[in-house]
Design a protein around this nucleic acid. Structure first.
Lengths: 203, 203
DNA sequence: CCAGCTCTGGACTGTCAAGTCCAGTGAGCC
DNA sequence: GGCTCACTGGACTTGACAGTCCAGAGCTGG
């Protein structure tokens, strides 16, 4: 929590290797099923290195939460910047579905998955996850606000509510996709969200 | 898995006490954070009783999955039978939101929560969860089908897709509610689902 | 009343995990 | 060359957990 020690390039590289390895393992197996020995093996780092860079496992998990939200938002970087047009939104939705097809509907949403595992166990992590989801949602909300300004959405449309509904469709769709091992579930949920957004077009 | 031994009333009572205690603990802390000692304490049952009724922890968890899906569906019993009218659907949605308000937006959906924890770790549990969600969704699908037959939905409406979208809204809304500790998130998601269903009314 | 079972209590074992400790190593600086 | 300090290796301690074992309690049917 206090430690962030990594004043040399080598130290920073080691720290990052540890976080990335942990994030991978967490995505594969879940937080509880990852031991520090596992992390050490995958990151080629010894026990003392872990405790050199992190206070304890919880501290490491927090770093993973941050890294994961960065990774998820980063992976959509090109898309999230263009949520101010119908084409941009469609491209975004298509990319999300494509991603699930590629990973054979495994893993769900990295953030949503962490949420389910940590929300009731680690208040600090919950807050970090909420913040990450908030940033994600903000991109859409801002895109929709721009669209309303440009007359592509009705003046009475509420970008905040529409963005929230869309986030719920994404997370719910991903959960169904994961449980049913069927990317089509996300497609259906997003088609619904799309219809809802279109319904907010000006008459 | 094979064991189901409980041939006396007392035995059945003990078994049920164990499952219920485990389900409670799992809901409070998550699967990984529950030890068999915890279960024993809460259920007032000794180690050997656990292993008398269940093969191992995984077997017990499977029983919890089943019990939880039964409990979730059971809790909505009166409501799920009347999803063939707009009023019935509204009552159902209202009840879901009210439930989240009561529990202070903690815990999310018991089934969805299990899904996030087990989907990638326990194929058998994933299948059981999928089946549970399927039964849930089926109630709505059947209600919507009835409504279409009665002319309350357009002939072209697709009850299966509408039911899936609604389930996604519920699960996604619950996840946002849990992460943000705000029941209003579910309300917004369900309002969206409601609008989508209404859009499928005959012209 | 006894034989046979279901069911129960709790001690025991082996394993594995988190976290500690200290003796280093090696790159930059004087 | 030697000093310093960030960084590293791995053995060690402590505790908790899943799963085993066996002796015994208590019901039940004959």
């Amino acid at each position: 929590m206090i430690t962030d020690a990594a004043s040399t390039a080598k130290g920073r590289a080691t720290r990052e290797r540890i976080v990335r390895a942990t994030a991978e393992l967490v995505a594969e197996r879940g937080v509880a099923a990852v031991s520090l020995d596992d992390v050490g093996r995958r990151a080629r780092a010894s026990r003392s290195q872990l405790y050199h860079y992190f206070d304890d496992k919880a501290d490491l998990v927090h770093a993973v939460v941050d890294a994961t939200t960065e990774a998820v938002l980063g992976a959509q970087d090109g898309l999230l910047a263009h949520l101010d047009s119908w084409a941009g939104i469609d491209r975004w939705f298509d990319a999300l579905v494509e991603l699930q097809r590629e990973c054979q509907a495994r893993g769900g949403c990295p953030i949503g998955s962490l949420a389910g595992q940590l929300a009731e166990r680690d208040p600090e992590a919950r807050a970090a996850i909420a913040a990450g989801l908030g940033r994600w949602e903000a991109h859409l909300r801002e895109g929709l606000t721009t669209m309303r300004e440009r007359g592509k959405l009705a003046p009475g449309a509420d970008p905040a509510r529409l963005a929230t509904v869309t986030m719920a469709a994404i997370q719910g769709g991903l959960l169904l996709t994961q449980v049913r091992r069927d990317p089509q579930q996300l497609r259906i949920a997003l088609d619904g969200a799309r219809a809802l957004l279109h319904a907010a077009r000006p008459k």
